[in-house]
Design a protein around this nucleic acid. Structure first.
Lengths: 225, 225
DNA sequence: ACAAAAGTGTTCGATCTACACCCATGA
DNA sequence: TCATGGGTGTAGATCGAACACTTTTGT
């Protein structure tokens, strides 16, 4: 067996959401190959850091963002995926809340930018494939894990949650049935606050109760929408 | 950034099934570390092979087995998971049919051995964790993907499928309801053959129709049990 | 008073669950 | 003829889908 000379990198697909738009954070590459092209943020793993640490470090270095949900997506390892040589990349999947989303959108406009997932540019390497896998994961997982709350502010009106789901699932959801179902899951706390943005009746704010969710999950109750 | 010296390996959790028993293929390590201990088969990735090729090569070298279903499970990358240095391992999940199962069980008895998943030994490295993840994946995925057929002979009586599911799910399944549901999925062909092993009325044999399954999947019909 | 978004129940059909007897074969 | 596993239908309960009017606020 010849000495191994494979390099290891991590890449992260970061999703953000605001007002019916799902966005992905991309960076413009500064060096060859694919110089000037858009790419998913990422980079090489250091010898003594965990993979998750590598993701968070690279994300912070390249985009300044601080994510609040991270999970491993898939490892891409085709021998020819990087023209520089053999690079195996462990792709991650991250979610940020609207506040981080807005901050990141206002700074660093040249290097890192949010793209609506329906208006994506051609990406470098096999990043289109990675992004596709990430979108499928998000759409699939949102129906059986409470991921949606990671994309909203901690306090949110029901209509935000509903709009998020209808956007992600790509179809209308019935307001009454949706509310019944979510309330029935028993993982939301209704707050005494009301939102009052603009016209119409102010909405009660809700908050995801993670503690209760983990409790119910341990008892075998499954989240499903 | 210091030069990267991370090594890359693949490991495969291979499941086999026979008569109500789910087994995992393990090897006894020949060299330190963990010499003489049981471990999941695997090894280092070569520079020019894909990850899947590496898995199949290592499996064949170490156990002689030829698997018929393979999917990536998870990548394990904690810096201290291997005492020899930094080794990141991409774990795979494989299924074999009973015929391969029986052949592998009869040869190489010293190096590779099947273990019932309820009677597992202590494993090397973080392989207990990997195995746990694989078992959870198998149990979870079997309810929404037609994985079960990969563990049975291509022609099988309904009762085999039923027993497999009740074993994997860890609970009794109602024979009539189960049959109704599976038949309703419309992915089984009923053959004109009958099995006649021992006593009792001979059972009709069925066969999974993968073509029809992919067809239905494309149309959005989902497999669920 | 009207525009705009929030909040709320009921009915119908589909699906799931529970359950027990007859059938075909080999010994 | 008996033991063994294979094959089948129905009724009640539960769950999901469809659907429209009233409430609260700002202008």
């Amino acid at each position: 067996m010849s000495k191994q000379s494979i390099k290891l990198s991590v890449d992260a697909v970061v999703f953000g959401y605001e007002e019916g738009n799902i966005s992905v954070l991309l960076i413009k590459r500064k060096y060859a190959p694919f110089k000037g092209n858009w790419a998913i943020p990422g980079g090489f793993v250091l010898n003594n850091e965990s993979l998750e640490d590598a993701v968070e470090r690279e994300l912070f270095e390249e985009t300044g963002i601080k994510i609040n949900y991270l999970e491993q997506l898939y490892t891409f390892g085709m021998p020819d995926r990087d023209p520089r040589g053999r690079v195996v990349s462990i792709a991650y999947f991250a979610l940020v809340r609207p506040d981080a989303f807005k901050i990141a959108a206002s700074t660093d406009a040249e290097q890192a930018q949010w793209f609506n997932i329906n208006e994506l540019p051609e990406l470098s390497f096999d990043h289109n494939e990675i992004l596709k896998a990430a979108i499928e994961r998000l759409q699939g997982k949102i129906t059986y894990e409470p991921l949606g709350f990671e994309l909203l502010d901690t306090k949110f009106p029901f209509s935000d949650l509903e709009k998020l789901y209808s956007t992600l699932l790509g179809r209308a959801v019935d307001r009454r049935n949706f509310r019944k179902k979510i309330i029935g899951l028993n993982v939301l706390d209704e707050l005494d606050e009301k939102s009052s943005k603009g016209s119409g009746r102010p909405a009660n704010l809700f908050q995801f109760n993670q503690k209760r969710y983990f409790q119910l999950k341990k008892e075998g109750i499954i989240f499903e929408i």
